[in-house]
Design a binder for these strands. Structure first.
Lengths: 196, 196
DNA sequence: ACGACAACCGGACCACGGTCCGCTTCAACC
DNA sequence: GGTTGAAGCGGACCGTGGTCCGGTTGTCGT
């Protein structure tokens, strides 16, 4: 979560770092134990032994905190995409990579649905601009462009990104009770139809 | 918003009906004047000359009120779909009807983006189950099924419905500054690719 | 006209997310 | 070690969405 956009960014003070870690741990623990929607920010601050102000200065708001908690796992996924074995990693044809990417993201999101929902939904469009989402989008766009440059690449990318949203996934998984495997297959089919 | 699910539902008391109307008007007026996100429920209750409790008992919560305000216009769209001229109404081949439907919904949503966002986003998945959304979904599903019964109809329906979501539209319109016409064309292309 | 009951009303009340500002603590430099 | 300036801290505070319950008002049967 440290964002040293410029290398000249001031280093973090020791107590600040310690508190950040404590908050992250507390959030992870409480959200896992009591559920995301049943855990207030006050409770997290208290669990971390920290004032409310500290929490909010560090993380801005609730959905950003969720994003920060997700960040570690997200990096693992990014690594697998950038340097892992095909078809998720480089080496396979674009359409196959897209299907594999969809599968991976769906699985990732399904594993921690509530958390991703928190980050994605209650953030007034900030989600789309968040770092991990931007990376995902870029990856999709590159592959779409490689598979079928003769179409509206941006629009196709939007559709493929949106089909992986936590909201849609939550609806499909919980309301319509569609199993994950079916959604993964459906996404693969969508990719094939759209770009194949 | 009266929901006489069973015809035997108790009739509405006169003052209750009057208050419901006043609230609906006040909400419409204030939201139009000051913007959706800048208008609190307190303000609406005050403008309507009604207690807060009345407002919330009638409409449950903020997003449901937004839904109620949208309801009138939604009906017009439904009529056009069910009894209007082709290609939006009956008579055209399914793929063309789907493209026309997408166009209409996108235009409808774009016209009142903030309101639809309010109804769609801040409602913990209740949006998907709302009456208008259910009708839209059913319509999509029938057409998809007619156009291409040999695929995962439910999944395709989900994708086509999701591609019309206000969140995606807001992102495309505001963040990426894609003009509405482009999105309508993109949707038509999506339909063609997916089902043609 | 009147009484009785249910539906309805309204605003006090609560919990929560988020802000603000006076005080504290760190760390860098003498 | 002492001084100093700034980064950091925490909890009082605010506005908002949403709930609750004692009092009121409409409606219906007589």
């Amino acid at each position: 979560m440290e964002l040293p956009l410029a290398p000249s960014a001031a280093p973090e003070r020791a107590d600040a770092a310690r508190n950040r870690e404590r908050i992250l741990c507390a959030a992870q623990r409480l959200w896992a134990e009591r559920g995301v929607s049943c855990t207030s920010m006050d409770a997290i601050a208290a669990e971390a032994g920290v004032g409310k102000g500290t929490l909010f200065r560090r993380f801005g708001d609730r959905s950003s905190l969720a994003l920060a908690v997700l960040d570690v796992r997200e990096r693992a996924l990014q690594d697998a995409v950038l340097t892992g074995p095909p078809p998720l990693g480089p080496g396979a044809p674009p359409v196959e990579r897209l299907a594999a990417f969809g599968s991976a993201v769906l699985a990732f999101t399904a594993e921690q649905l509530d958390l991703v929902l928190e980050a994605e939904v209650h953030s007034g469009g900030r989600w789309m601009r968040s770092a991990p989402q931007a990376v995902r989008r870029l990856h999709l766009q590159v592959l779409v462009s490689a598979a079928r440059p003769d179409c509206d690449v941006e629009y196709a990318t939007d559709v493929l990104a949106d089909a992986l949203s936590a909201q849609l996934l939550a609806h499909q998984l919980r309301e319509r009770e569609m199993p994950l495997e079916r959604l993964q297959a459906g996404y693969a089919d969508l990719v094939e139809r759209l770009l194949g």
